[in-house]
């Protein structure tokens, strides 16, 4: 059925303000940001690079590479942690047991809290002091006789960023659980029954019937958690501030705006955008195809 502009025109008109706002604030500003990143607006910093040189010099920088490495560690732990706990909780709650709603709500509640607020308590929990001076988790460990577990958390040069991901895992595992629960609940009972009638063991049922059905939920979780992780900022500012040892690109960017090096800040921002786009665009294409089927 073909409609003329008389039919769809009003619809377009109704959405036009939003198109204008999103066009300006999202795409217009992205373009503007890219143009700053290619400029020589380094403030009072005596470097005069511009254009693509801004990108090459940033990518060669030790500091930026370190921040990417930190981000990678953080992201891997964040993803693995949330998927692991999310899946485990979903499986534990899946088949309905008394109090399911209670557990589900409790596991989800950290999601309602801001990283800034939870950062306050995690900063205390992840205090690096050990032994007699310990507070936070280290104190708990030594009290319950697990002194061997005491460690410097995010102050550790090697695995600090893995510790930094713990609050993020705490906060978002419940969300991944909810995704998996929805996935599990959408698997038709007939499918399970058919498998059982075929004599499949519970293990084989999960391995060959249930888990394959969950992969779309896992994919959503990966992309959603992944893109949150790549732009992590609040959490790190709340816990360690601008310490170099936990620096990620978003925090580096903040530092550059503080000293007025706009071109460098914009360059970091553009690289962040590209990294996120690489993750998100294929996902959006994939889901829209899926939807059309």
């Amino acid at each position: 059925m073909k409609h003329g502009i008389r039919h769809w025109g009003p619809g377009l008109l109704m959405i036009l303000p939003s198109i204008g706002l999103v066009g300006l604030f999202v795409y217009g500003l992205i373009g503007w940001n890219i143009s700053i990143s290619l400029s020589d607006e380094h403030g009072s910093i005596p470097v005069d690079t511009s254009g693509i040189d801004n990108y090459t010099s940033l990518l060669q920088e030790q500091r930026f590479q370190d921040s990417l490495e930190n981000l990678a560690t953080f992201t891997i732990v964040f993803l693995v942690g949330t998927l692991f706990f999310g899946l485990m909780w979903a499986l534990l709650l899946e088949r309905g047991l008394r109090g399911e709603g209670f557990f589900r709500s409790m596991y989800l509640f950290p999601m309602a809290v801001s990283f800034i607020a939870s950062g306050v308590v995690w900063r205390w929990l992840l205090n690096a002091s050990e032994g007699d001076d310990a507070t936070g988790l280290n104190r708990l460990f030594s009290t319950i006789g697990l002194s061997g577990l005491e460690n410097p958390w995010y102050s550790d040069p090697g695995w600090g960023m893995a510790a930094m991901a713990m609050p993020a895992v705490w906060q978002l595992s419940g969300y991944v659980m909810a995704l998996f629960l929805a996935g599990l609940r959408s698997i038709p009972d007939e499918l399970r029954e058919a498998a059982r009638i075929d004599g499949a063991s519970e293990f084989r049922l999960y391995r060959h019937v249930i888990f394959p059905q969950l992969s779309p939920a896992a994919l959503s979780a990966l992309v959603i958690i992944g893109h949150m992780s790549l732009k992590v900022f609040d959490l790190i500012m709340a816990i360690s501030g601008e310490a170099r040892i936990t620096e990620v690109p978003a925090v580096y960017l903040w530092g550059m705006t503080t000293i007025g090096d706009d071109a460098k800040a914009a360059t970091i921002a553009t690289i962040l955008l590209l990294v996120v786009a690489v993750v998100v665009i294929p996902y959006l294409i994939f889901t829209s195809r899926w939807e059309r089927r």
């Binding site: 009072s44 910093i45 370190d66 503080t258 000293i259």
Partner: peptide, 19 residues
């Protein structure tokens, strides 16, 4: 020193703290 120089030194010192 100017802020930018200080920022670079701070970053180097921060890195030294772990390396």
């Amino acid at each position: 020193a100017p802020l930018g120089w200080l920022e670079e030194i701070t970053s180097a010192i921060g890195e030294f703290s772990s390396s």
